Amino acid sequence: MGFKLLSKLLVYLTASIMAIASPLAFSVDSSGEYPTVSEIPVGEVRLYQIADGVWSHIATQSFDGAVYPSNGLIVRDGDELLLIDTAWGAKNTAALLAEIEKQIGLPVTRAVSTHFHDDRVGGVDVLRAAGVATYASPSTRRLAEVEGNEIPTHSLEGLSSSGDAVRFGPVELFYPGAAHSTDNLIVYVPSASVLYGGCAIYELSRTSAGNVADADLAEWPTSIERIQQHYPEAQFVIPGHGLPGGLDLLKHTTNVVKAHTNRSVVE
């Protein structure tokens, strides 16, 4: 069995187990497998329904001669939608809004960016022009300005110390501490036991640490421990890039980060 097929099978099995364990909360999309990078042309966006009122959005972007996937989250909030992270750029984010209108038909009224990198804030200006209120932590807003990236308009308070959590509509926002970046936030959907790890969490097929220019490698494993301790009931975990899975993604990420750190020390 090929690795790609095995990865998709694991996603399907995880979703099936969740649907059985929580039949009222989960209505997993039966329309197909989780979209992969090879299936999404740059400039297009796919939506994948995880649970009743919960979707991931998947886009792709060219970077350094390669094409990478990027995940975000959409959560229903009454007759409105909360968006977590842009679709990595203005063109993708405009396509995301169009796809949401086509498939869901509810307005996106608020959006949260989970850290300051372009795959999370690139497209904020498109959201703002569409009347979406954009939010991020003060740290993310400051770092985005320093980096020359787009800056969300509103500040999220109460997320300055490791372990801080605040309720934001249908989700809980959690600051686990520094990891992929010093400002990275985690998003949890309690009604569906869905954990969105953003770039602080890796997919299972990833074996290298990737972009760690703004990471705190020493603190990252401790931050992941905080996530595990705060959300032990999480059933569906979405990484910032690639295929979702279960809580095993947290341990896998820790292993990859520690291996990278150990290699760096040896070198």
Rank of each mutant, 00 (worst) to 15 (best):
His180Glu: 01
Leu81Thr: 05
Arg141Ile: 11
Val212His: 08
Ser38Arg: 10
Ile238Val: 10
Leu195Ala: 00
Ser191Tyr: 11
Gly43Thr: 05
Thr153Met: 11
Ala178Trp: 07
Arg120Gln: 02
Val126Gly: 04
Ile224Ser: 01
Trp220Lys: 01
Leu195Tyr: 04
Ala21Pro: 08
Tyr196Cys: 05
Pro41Tyr: 07
Tyr12Gln: 09
Leu249Phe: 06
His230Tyr: 09
Leu173Asp: 03
Phe63Val: 11
Val237Thr: 03
Pro190Ile: 05
Thr114Gly: 01
Ser193Ile: 06
Ile20Leu: 11
Arg120Thr: 01
Ser160Gly: 13
Val126Ile: 08
His260Thr: 12
Ile186Ser: 03
Thr222His: 14
Leu73Pro: 06
Ala165Thr: 13
Gly53Cys: 05
Gly78Cys: 06
Arg142Asn: 12
Asp183Trp: 00
Ile104Asn: 06
Gly122His: 08
Ala259Gln: 12
Ile104Glu: 00
Lys91Cys: 07
Ile74Pro: 02
Trp55Arg: 03
Gly65Ser: 11
Ser7Asp: 07
Val189Lys: 00
Gly240Cys: 00
Thr182Met: 13
Leu81Cys: 04
Tyr48Gly: 07
His180Val: 00
Ser223Phe: 05
Arg110Ile: 08
Ser161His: 13
Ser208Lys: 10
Glu150Thr: 04
Tyr34Asn: 07
Ala213Leu: 12
Ala129Val: 09
Thr134Leu: 01
Val194Leu: 09
Gly246Pro: 06
Ala136Gln: 03
Ala21Lys: 15
Leu96Ile: 05
Gly65Val: 07
Val257Lys: 01
Ala234Asn: 03
Ile227Glu: 00
Ala192Met: 08
His241Cys: 00
Pro221Trp: 05
Ser56Glu: 14
Phe168Ile: 06
Ser193Val: 07
Ser160Lys: 13
Lys251Ala: 12
Leu247Gly: 09
Arg141Lys: 14
Ser160Thr: 13
Ser16His: 15
Phe168Asp: 00
Ser181Gln: 04
Phe3Pro: 06
Thr182Ile: 11
Lys258Ala: 11
Ile50Gly: 02
Ser27Thr: 12
Gly163Ile: 04
Ser208Arg: 09
Ser162Arg: 14
Leu195Phe: 08
Pro221Lys: 08
Pro23Lys: 11
Thr254Met: 12
Met1Pro: 00
Leu9Gly: 12
Val42Glu: 15
Leu24Cys: 07
Glu157Phe: 11
His230Gly: 08
Thr261Phe: 09
Pro138Met: 08
Arg128Gln: 13
Asp248Ser: 11
Gly210Lys: 06
Gly43Trp: 05
Gln235Lys: 10
Asp77Gln: 05
Glu157Asn: 14
Ser38Gly: 11
Glu101Met: 09
Asp164Asn: 14
Phe63Met: 13
Asn184Trp: 00
Gly148Lys: 09
Arg120His: 07
Leu249Trp: 02
Ile58Phe: 07
Leu250Asn: 02
Leu83Tyr: 01
Tyr135Glu: 00
Leu247Arg: 15
Gly105Pro: 07
Leu250Gly: 00
Leu47Val: 14
Ser264Leu: 11
Val171Gly: 01
Gly89Glu: 01
Gly148Asn: 10
His154Val: 07
Gly123Gln: 04
Lys4Tyr: 08
Gln235Cys: 06
Ile186Glu: 00
Leu47Ala: 04
Asn92Leu: 03
Ile201Gly: 01
Glu33Phe: 09
Asp164Ala: 13
Ser113Ala: 10
Ser162Tyr: 11
Thr14Asp: 10
Ile227Tyr: 02
Leu9Pro: 11
Lys8Val: 15
Ala178Val: 07
Leu10Ser: 15
Tyr48Met: 15
Ser137Arg: 05
Gln49Ser: 11
Asp77Phe: 07
Phe116Met: 06
Gly197Asn: 04
Asn262Leu: 11
Gly123Lys: 05
Glu80Tyr: 06
Pro244Phe: 06
Asp77Ala: 07
Val265Trp: 11
Ala21Gly: 13
Ile50Pro: 04
His252Pro: 02
Trp220Ser: 01
Glu267Gly: 07
Val108Gln: 00
Met18Val: 15
Ile238Gln: 00
